[in-house]
Design a binder for these strands. Structure first.
Lengths: 123, 123
DNA sequence: ATTACTGTACTATACGTATAATACAGCAAG
DNA sequence: CTTGCTGTATTATACGTATAGTACAGTAAT
C-alpha cells in the first residue's frame, strides 16, 4: 500500500524519516537488503527520482550503503544504529518540549497530559 | 531581534505557529492590538508579503481579526483560545507519541525518557 | 486638506521540490 | 552473449514559496 505522506513537507524528507524509523525500530534488520529504488518508489506511490533522492541523502547518515550494481543494504553497525536512535529520541523530545513550553505549559503539566493520553490509549 | 525561523518549512507556516503560541501562552492578550504587518515583518526579518500571508491565513482560525484600516486584534473570546490550546496540545502529543512509537519505543520508555530529560533541564 | 498610518493587491523573479521520460554502466543468470 | 536487474544521471515541466517593488482605499491626527 502507498505510504502515508503529506504534502506539507518535502516527500523525500518524509521518506528518509520513515526509513530511518524502520531501521531504528528493527523493521529493517542490520545487513538486510533494501528493495530496489523502483520497487520502493512503487510501494510508496512516489516517483523513482524522488525515492532515489531520498535514499542517496540517507547514505550520508551511514545507516545504509549502496552497492552500485547489486542494491542497497542496511548497515551492520548496530552501535551506529543505537546511537542514532537515542540521538533522535532526545532531539524529538527536545523539540516537543520546547513547542509545548512555547504554548505556556510547564513540564509538570506536560507530563500529566502525556500520562493521561497514554492511559486513554491503553484503554 | 529576528525571529527563530528555519528554512526547512514554509516561513509563513512558522509565523502562524509562533503567533498562535503567543496567543495561547498569553504573550498576546485577548483584545490586544497586534503590531502592523510592516512592523512585524521587520521584527521577524521577513518580507512584508510573507507576514501578510501568514496573518491573513491566521484569520481563518478566528484567533485574530483584522480591522482593515486600524489594525489587527487578538480575539476577546477566551473560550476559543482555551479550546484551541487544549486541541493543539493534544494534537502535538499525538504526533509526538506516534513518532516515538515508530522508532520502536513503548509508552513507558517514552515517559521515562521525558522524565529524565525534564529532571536534567531543571538542574 | 494634508500626512501618516492601517490592510490589501498585483507583477515579476528566483529557488526548491516533484514528476515524467529517458539513458547508461555494471553485475548476474539464462 | 543476451536478458534483466541494480544504482545513477540528465532534461524538461509544473507548482508552491519567498522576496522585491509598487500601488491603492480607508481611517485618524495634525
Amino acid at each position: 500500500m502507498a505510504w502515508k505522506l503529506d504534502s506539507e513537507r518535502p516527500i523525500y524528507t518524509q521518506i528518509i524519516e520513515r526509513v530511518v524509523a524502520g531501521i531504528i525500530s528493527g523493521t529493517y534488520q542490520p545487513g538486510e537488503k533494501l528493495p530496489s529504488v523502483r520497487e520502493l518508489a512503487a510501494e510508496a506511490a512516489v516517483n523513482p527520482n524522488t525515492m532515489q533522492k531520498a535514499l542517496s541523502e540517507l547514505e550520508r547518515t551511514g545507516l545504509v550503503k549502496s552497492q552500485r550494481t547489486s542494491g542497497r543494504f542496511i548497515t551492520e553497525d548496530t552501535g551506529l544504529i543505537n546511537s542514532k536512535k537515542s540521538e533522535l529520541a532526545k532531539k524529538e523530545i527536545k523539540v516537543f518540549l520546547e513547542k509545548m513550553e512555547s504554548m505556556g505549559l510547564d513540564p509538570e503539566e506536560i507530563e500529566n497530559y502525556i500520562h493521561e493520553y497514554i492511559k486513554e490509549e491503553e484503554a
